[in-house]
């Protein structure tokens, strides 16, 4: 099992977001989280990578608990969050080099040049990221997937702000990754079709709490 989420409970701002949530991601499987805004898609990704601690429940990557992998986990997944974490005053190329360094890969100039061609960013590679449009920034972010060598991809709304051609290319990228034995968990607010994919519909929990109980101190946090 590449990724396992076992009975996760999570509260945020006194609101229950995950109520006994379970998920299992196998090898070469694509899973799409579909849900409206505020359903907790980004929160789920933050919980998986270990930034947020769930109130209850277990998360395992490759059958190891997430708390036990400290520096090792950067070799296990590639997470593209909603905030693109690109530095405005660096060029596209420098941004990618910086990302390769911190994600523990080995630098290779040819690979970067080849990967930039996939989304036709080669002419722009000396341009500062501050001058790019929203879609172009997203393409720079997705170029990281080509350079990544991890088995698990976690993509938070990867199709936001992309044109139709790039969406097709990204889908192809994800399908190829699955063919090579990698697995992908991605989120989207609309339904979309990717070959051999499994869909999970997330909904904001509307538990009727007419009778509010104050039995433990955590209830009034």
């Amino acid at each position: 099992m590449v990724l396992e989420i076992i009975s996760v409970y999570f509260y945020r701002n006194k609101k229950l977001i995950f109520d006994n949530f379970n998920l299992k991601l196998k090898k070469s499987q694509i899973m799409i989280l579909i849900g409206s805004n505020g359903a907790g898609k980004s929160t789920l990704f933050d919980i998986i990578v270990g930034i947020l601690e769930p109130n209850n429940g277990i998360i395992k990557l490759d059958n190891i608990m997430i708390e036990e992998l400290s520096a090792k986990k950067r070799k296990m997944f590639t997470y593209l969050p909603h905030k693109d974490s690109l530095k405005d005053n660096l060029t596209i190329e420098e941004n990618l080099i910086s990302w390769i360094n911190i994600s523990g890969n080995i630098l290779n100039k040819d690979q970067i040049n080849r990967s930039l061609e996939y989304y036709q960013l080669s002419e722009l590679k000396k341009k500062f990221v501050a001058n790019l449009s929203q879609g172009q920034r997203k393409k720079v972010l997705l170029t990281k997937l080509i350079l990544a060598k991890t088995k698990l991809w976690l993509l938070d709304e990867p199709f936001n702000g992309l044109d139709a051609d790039s969406i097709k290319k990204t889908k192809k990228l994800i399908e190829n990754h699955a063919k090579n034995g990698g697995s992908t968990l991605l989120s989207n607010h609309l339904d979309l079709s990717i070959k051999n994919s499994k869909k999970i519909f997330l909904q904001p929990i509307k538990k009727s709490r007419d009778i509010v109980k104050f039995e433990t101190w955590d209830d009034i946090r």
């Binding site: 400290s70 905030k83 974490s85």
Partner: peptide, 18 residues
């Protein structure tokens, strides 16, 4: 603040840096 606003502080954290 730059690192915090563009999300790269978060990136460093989830990549497992101390």
């Amino acid at each position: 603040s730059n690192d915090c606003n563009d999300g790269s502080l978060k990136e460093l954290q989830f990549l497992g840096y101390n």
